[in-house]
Simulated scan of single mutants.
Amino acid sequence: MAKRGARNRQRNAGLDNGKFPRFWGTHAVTAAINNPERQIRWIRGTREALGAFDLPPGVPVEFAEVADLGRMVARDAPHQGVVAEVEPLDDMLLADVMSGDPARPLVVLDQVTDPHNVGAIFRSAAAFDAAAVITQDRHAPPESGTVAKAASGALEIVPWIRVVNLARALEEMAAAGYWRIGLDGDAEQTLGDALGSGPVALVFGAEGEGLRYNVAGHCDVLARLPISAAIESLNVSNAAAISLYAAHINARND
């Protein structure tokens, strides 16, 4: 993983109304513990749940009842008997990940705000060896327990690059040799035909609204997934998973 840069204090200070994010569930907490770049403030859980963890030294650990844990997290969150309060990961630069393996795609999210979708996209990004997920500072969810739970540990594996301006970031990708493909259900060309032989950036818009005009204009090509006419569209996280698989297979066949 590329080295993370200085922490963006202004962004993190506003996270969750000034509070540190709390992760819950076995996969999210285990991945946070195993990530040497993640600072964990404390861990609380039932005796049974914590007995299955290799708890890190120096981190405050307390036993808690199930009902108490439920009051520490989002309503009805499936905490599986363990909750950890963590510090957000340090920021990373786009240039850091673009200097890595060119066969690994970039995932660009244009105002995808639902934390469940973003988390699921991180999970697919990890599964298909994406180099990073890129979002705006604004119009994107912060690191949170909901994102971490949906990501099932991938939030600790795939770098999350936050940029001020997506169009400018896409220009940087082009300068670095990336072929920028915007996913658009109305595009004439299919994704399979649009994929080239070099580094690729897959760009996804919000559900319903799709890619914004300026972001679409900074893509080299717009492409669609060849889905059945019986279904109007796919959830953005499903579309990302299919697109990442296609890019992964394409890179292996080059």
Rank of each mutant, 00 (worst) to 15 (best):
247 A>R: 09
137 D>H: 15
56 P>Y: 07
127 A>Q: 07
77 A>W: 13
120 A>F: 10
78 P>K: 12
171 E>C: 08
225 L>N: 05
82 V>N: 07
16 D>L: 15
225 L>M: 06
34 N>W: 09
131 A>T: 03
111 Q>W: 10
204 F>A: 01
176 A>E: 08
128 F>I: 04
237 S>T: 11
241 A>F: 09
64 A>K: 08
231 I>R: 15
243 S>A: 15
231 I>P: 00
109 L>Q: 02
156 E>I: 01
195 L>E: 05
147 V>H: 06
161 I>Y: 03
47 R>E: 15
205 G>Y: 11
217 G>C: 00
81 G>T: 03
198 G>K: 11
192 G>N: 14
131 A>S: 12
106 L>M: 14
116 H>M: 13
148 A>C: 04
122 F>Q: 07
85 E>D: 05
230 A>H: 12
26 T>V: 15
196 G>W: 06
5 G>E: 11
9 R>S: 13
89 L>G: 06
55 L>T: 01
99 S>C: 11
171 E>W: 06
163 V>Y: 09
177 G>E: 04
50 L>G: 01
117 N>F: 11
73 V>C: 06
228 S>Q: 12
240 A>L: 08
115 P>Q: 05
147 V>I: 13
195 L>I: 10
6 A>E: 14
151 A>Q: 03
229 A>S: 15
60 P>L: 02
165 N>W: 10
123 R>M: 08
31 A>H: 09
41 R>W: 10
1 M>Q: 14
119 G>W: 00
118 V>L: 12
149 K>D: 09
239 A>T: 06
251 A>G: 07
175 A>G: 03
207 E>G: 03
237 S>C: 10
44 R>D: 11
223 A>T: 01
170 L>A: 05
251 A>S: 14
66 V>Y: 09
172 E>N: 12
68 D>M: 10
72 M>P: 00
239 A>D: 08
26 T>G: 00
148 A>D: 01
145 G>D: 06
57 P>T: 08
124 S>G: 04
80 Q>L: 02
23 F>M: 12
97 V>F: 03
77 A>H: 11
112 V>P: 07
23 F>T: 05
25 G>N: 09
22 R>P: 04
179 W>N: 13
200 V>E: 03
42 W>E: 14
161 I>W: 03
117 N>A: 12
52 A>D: 10
167 A>V: 15
53 F>H: 02
96 D>C: 02
74 A>F: 10
76 D>R: 14
139 H>C: 08
208 G>R: 14
192 G>P: 00
39 Q>F: 08
134 I>Y: 05
211 L>Q: 05
51 G>Y: 03
208 G>M: 09
250 N>S: 15
40 I>N: 10
21 P>D: 07
53 F>A: 02
97 V>T: 09
31 A>Y: 11
77 A>D: 08
236 V>E: 10
105 P>Q: 04
238 N>D: 09
6 A>T: 12
20 F>I: 00
71 R>V: 10
91 D>N: 14
159 P>F: 09
145 G>T: 01
170 L>M: 11
52 A>R: 12
160 W>D: 00
225 L>D: 09
159 P>A: 01
166 L>G: 09
71 R>K: 14
173 M>F: 00
20 F>Q: 13
11 R>E: 12
24 W>Q: 08
123 R>E: 04
51 G>C: 03
78 P>R: 13
220 D>W: 02
53 F>C: 00
158 V>K: 01
